[in-house]
Write a protein that binds this DNA or RNA. Structure first.
Lengths: 359, 359
DNA sequence: TTGAAAGCGCTAACAC
DNA sequence: GTGTTAGCGCTTTCAA
């Protein structure tokens, strides 16, 4: 149909010929601008522009090993928690002129390994967000490429986390100030580093603030998981609950509400993460907000520093401050109707469930 | 500290030497398995495994042009709408043994161009999700690399969209069945392809179903945008509203509720997309669900087909079915208190706003 | 400051 | 089937 030749993208040689210089000079012009005569450099840029020349990143990467790509692998792309993190990461990556390679482990440690296997040799560094791999596997990776883990700590591997202890402490204080004396922690995945630190922090806060704390779970860190927890909670109700994350808190609130329990009048609920939906549910969720975007950005910036040769001898994890966002799901404890049962407020037609319930 | 030499990754040559064959044979073993003696192939795989050899994807890409990477660029990574799409895309990409390169345009057409500029030469194909670039720019891109656009149609560029007309029709029917006679459409971004098709579809549905329809906007496709629309809506209230997307619907509901308008008793509200939060808000949002994950998957699969040489002469956009998810934000119209004002149901202390209100 | 030449690790003819 | 030999487009000594 058309006369156009199948236009091959112009190379360094095309530019060199057109500008009447050696290929190496063209290369220098773009890679090592100082090392070439200003006049000729200008001429070269000129002709390069005319020809529409663009350096070929992969050809460039072959001899240098510099691909300008970093891999970000998340444990679960569907989890809204990763949204803001990704966004922060992406902007930091772009800002540095790098490109982000995204992989989803779909909550599977083995899939995570696979994808890294395929990807690792292509990238200059790796961010592992909420990795599901065992420590040993992560160390293996970190030995081969600069690596930063997010939401987890690991000896010898740089990491970025949120200050869970402080956040949990604030949550407990908040509940204490509202008059609550017993707090139930609804645990997330056992394998989760964050879950461990949160529960530990709550126990310590309980000691310090003279609050009684207990733990139920583990449950999946989802709305469904939270709903499941409600049944268990009802066996031994407390007037205050802290959930591993917002999704679980939301699930919990829904299930409790369905059972006729009023939030926050009967039970105060606090979540973690401050995901987008936390502000939209009813009642709006009081939650410990993680600086999601900042975590992504920080992880990437630190990774880039390592790539540039910084040794980051500070083996200490970078801990970003979290803050308590008070919304409508927490309120003063009402002395007259704590445990053992909230049965009096039952919604019409709902199945009765008491503290001694067997569900 | 240690004696380990700075281990260079083993190459094809290392394997060749160790196995006593030519390098090309090793290459064939991995790239063109049929073309080599089963026995020697086995021996080569063996020694390769022992040496821990992995093919170097970028070295492989240089002579062949096959990078096994595709770029996905989204207009806004923070928009929950893209979550499921990305997830679907990622899984299709991984399934094909490809790697996904993710870029965020941050709602800026120029940033989108930039990132594509840097990225294009590295990938075998491109998915443009909700692109903010002008048609001409997209055509330019599509000329250089196989491209599929998502959520938009464009002559000569393969696309994947949802069946907005059908979805809108279903929404209108639903409202009609509930006795509503007048529907307000709250418009999203003017530049949005989806907005155009949705409004047009509603007009047509209005004609067919003998419903009165009108349009207000445009507003930003966010919670804030929806809230802003509430003020305008109150000037000329209707008993039913369809918003451009869920975020706007949520914002609208919030603002109306604050003004003492009850949803769905006073106003029925329908959104689009069925994002994660739609099921969590109160009242739960009736919405036209897009098959988000399927869209991502389909776009990628079609792109891969093009990469493999399919011409996809079917210039027709691929239209995926949407379905109406009925939840709690829609209800029967109550004859006795339609427009002009919902003032009678005013929440105590809230400012009065009538149809003639001036806010 | 510039040019010539030798790779980076892999593939793809082309012979044998 | 398998080996030989040029490259892919760019960088990087090493001379000049």
């Amino acid at each position: 149909m058309s006369d156009e030749a199948p236009h091959r993208a112009p190379t360094i040689y095309d530019v060199a010929k057109a500008a009447g210089v050696a290929a190496s000079t063209v290369s220098r012009t773009f890679a090592r601008p100082g090392r070439v005569n200003a006049a000729t450099a200008e001429r070269i840029r000129q002709t390069a522009a005319e020809l529409g020349y663009r350096v070929n990143p992969i050809a460039q990467a072959l001899p240098t090993g510099r691909t300008s790509m970093i891999a970000v692998v998340v444990s679960d792309l569907a989890n809204p928690f990763h949204n803001e993190i990704l966004r922060g990461a992406q902007s930091a990556v772009a800002e540095a002129g790098y490109t982000m390679l995204l992989a989803d482990a779909q909550e599977s440690g083995s899939r995570e390994r696979e994808v890294l296997e395929r990807t690792m040799s292509t990238v200059e560094g790796i961010v592992l967000a909420t990795s599901r791999m065992p420590d040993s596997a992560i160390r293996m990776i970190a030995k081969q490429r600069p690596t930063v883990v997010l939401n987890r700590t690991l000896a010898d591997v740089p990491s970025v986390v949120t200050d869970n202890p402080r956040g949990m402490r604030r949550a407990a204080e908040h509940l204490g100030e509202l008059g609550h004396e017993r707090i139930t922690y609804v645990a997330g995945p056992e394998a989760s580093w964050a879950d461990g630190t949160r529960w530990r922090a709550l126990r310590e806060a309980g000691l310090a603030l003279e609050l009684q704390v207990r733990r139920i779970g583990p449950y999946e860190p989802t709305v469904a998981g939270g709903a499941r927890a409600a049944a268990e909670l009802l066996k031994h109700p407390t007037s205050a609950v802290i959930a591993y994350n917002d999704m679980m808190a939301i699930g919990l609130i829904r299930a409790l509400t369905t059972d006729g329990v009023r939030i926050p009048q009967d039970v105060s609920v606090i979540g973690f993460d401050n995901i987008f939906a936390a502000d939209l549910v009813t009642p709006a969720l009081t939650t410990v907000a993680a600086p999601l975007a900042a975590m992504g950005t920080t992880a990437v910036r630190n990774l880039l520093a390592m790539i540039r040769g910084a040794r980051l001898q500070t083996a200490e994890p970078v801990s970003l401050p979290s803050r308590l966002v008070v919304r409508a799901s927490t309120a003063h404890r009402r002395r007259n109707r704590t445990s053992p049962a909230w049965g009096t407020t039952k919604a019409p037609g709902a199945e009765v469930s008491t503290a001694a319930g067997s569900r």
